[in-house]
């Protein structure tokens, strides 16, 4: 590993992890409200194409991210209507949402291949970015990287330190009880679903606007499924979601760098390492205390108030 520059590696992993981190955070909030939305991949790719179209059309990457969030939230409302109003099965609806998103994005993306989106500049920290090591790691990124980290803290604070977060969790643990207390279960879940969609959409937009940056059909290539898995293995806790996303992104980047640096570890092991290590570490930190009570008790169960 002598050849690998650690600061460059960390800086790269922070960028590579952003899409998964944003999507996983959003899905975590949705699941905390008791809604299992398996449509993360579909919402991400809708965000990727909506963001791309708007960024190309307006020349503003910022508006692109807003549109990406709107696109993800928009398609998630479809899920919300089906599951909250028509009480459709959440698993089936979520899977359908993914298929629908992949198809619709391909349709919308006709004519957008081969186009370069406007570049998103890295924030200029002036002298701070000149600090050895830390400058490269902490002060060399675009705003979305900092936004994703801010959201980890914000969501952690919201869920564990606010009354609204408590209500959200109550809805996810027992919709009946929350309903009996007078909370609007459907409305709260609607908000959680839309938030999850917006975050997934932003994650998707990050892929098409910054990380790759271009539009290709199926550009998210399964990132949504990784995000879903990370939520579970992180046992629905924001900081663990961060750890999971950085581990997965980090080891993905690390294994490519190790290959490029001529590591003697066989490539097969390097290629499977992101999956194995992420699962192993998250299972290890989630093991032991309260393993069975981690999942929101009402996860995946529809609720209908009988009036």
């Amino acid at each position: 590993m002598g050849d690998i520059n650690l600061s460059v590696l960390i800086a790269s992993l922070m960028v590579a992890s952003v899409p998964i981190l944003l999507a996983a955070l959003g899905e975590m909030v949705t699941e905390r409200a008791g809604v299992l939305n398996l449509g993360v991949e579909g919402m991400m790719i809708m965000g990727a194409i909506c963001g791309f179209i708007v960024a190309v059309g307006t020349g503003s990457p910022l508006l692109g991210f807003v549109a990406g969030a709107a696109g993800g939230a928009g398609i998630s409302l479809l899920f919300a209507v089906l599951t909250l109003v028509f009480l459709a099965n959440q698993v089936a609806t979520g899977l359908a949402l993914t298929l629908f998103g992949l198809g619709l994005s391909a349709l919308m993306g006709q004519g957008y291949t081969g186009i370069k989106p406007p570049a998103t500049a890295e924030i200029d920290f002036g002298a701070l970015s000149e600090i050895p090591f830390l400058g490269r790691v902490l002060f060399s990124h675009d705003w979305v990287v900092y936004f994703s980290l801010f959201m980890v803290v914000a969501i952690w604070w919201f869920i564990t330190r606010t009354r609204a977060g408590l209500v959200l969790r109550a809805v996810g643990e027992s919709a009946e009880a929350a309903h009996a207390l007078g909370y609007k279960v459907a409305r709260i879940r609607l908000g959680a679903i839309a938030f999850g969609g917006a975050m997934a959409g932003m994650g998707g937009a990050y892929i098409s606007l910054i990380r790759v940056p271009q539009w290709t059909d199926g550009i998210t290539a399964g990132a949504g499924w990784i995000a879903l898995a990370i939520v579970v293995f992180a046992s629905w806790r924001p900081v663990r979601v961060l750890i999971g996303a950085y581990l997965f992104g980090g080891i993905t980047v690390l294994q490519l760098n190790l290959q490029a640096a001529g590591s003697s570890i066989p490539v097969e092991y390097l290629s499977m390492a992101p999956y194995l290590v992420t699962i192993a570490v998250l299972v290890a930190i989630s093991a032991g205390r309260g393993r069975n009570t981690d999942a929101p008790a009402a996860l995946g169960q529809n609720f209908h108030s009988v009036r």
């Binding site: 050849d3 690998i4 520059n5 460059v8 590696l9 790269s12 590579a16 899409p19 892929i207 990380r211 790759v212 271009q214 290709t216 199926g218 550009i219 998210t220 290539a221 399964g222 990132a223 993905t252 980047v253 490519l256 760098n257 290959q259 490029a260 640096a261 001529g262 490539v267 290629s271």
Partner: peptide, 27 residues
């Protein structure tokens, strides 16, 4: 010559990551 195996034909994000890793290694 520095070779990185991506084990995919078609995954834009991974292909971009592989290119970034090569660039990080001085390619």
């Amino acid at each position: 010559m520095v070779v990185v195996w991506a084990f995919t034909w078609n995954d834009p994000a991974k292909e971009a990551d592989a290119a970034q890793a090569l660039i990080d290694q001085g390619v």
